[in-house]
Amino acid sequence: MGPVPDRPATSSRTPADRPATASGPGRVLIAVYAIFAVAATSRAAVQIATRFDEAPVPYALSAFAAVVYVLATFALARTGPTWWRVALVSCSVEMTGVLVVGTLSVFDRAAFPDATVWSNFGMGYLFIPLVLPVIGLLWLRRTRPA
């Protein structure tokens, strides 16, 4: 099989020739979001189920991050301007979250005894949590509905 284009010829493009968020390279982005959604949800579930009393704030933040990743994954996988807006809000909240929690965790280590995905700007996750919302927002700009 020879080289293939990034998107199929019969692509699910919008009338304005904007690619759907769940088409072409967007599907790679959604796969990474889904991996983080599952990882963050599982981690938060275990933290809250087994030792919530030890550090309620970071564990609640873990759960919040999980919700944001799940929402972003679903919104990016759907089509239509409404889901595009949900994705935009999710990715923006995620960007804010990783920057705020990242900064707080660096300057106030005592408040974050156990890691959340966003601690130290996602260092424990190879900084993917920091890069992901940037790529997400860039992709949303490219797929903005007319």
């Binding site: 990034d6 998107r7 199929p8 599907r27 796969a31 991996i35």
Partner: peptide, 28 residues
């Protein structure tokens, strides 16, 4: 999780067959 990630991810990757599907398999 280790049993589910490849099958579920492959279904997602192959739902639209492009070069991006190959990238998804690599990430999985």
């Amino acid at each position: 999780g280790s049993l589910l990630v490849l099958p579920l991810g492959t279904v997602w990757a192959l739902a639209e067959r492009t070069r991006s599907s190959t990238a998804i398999l690599g990430i999985l």
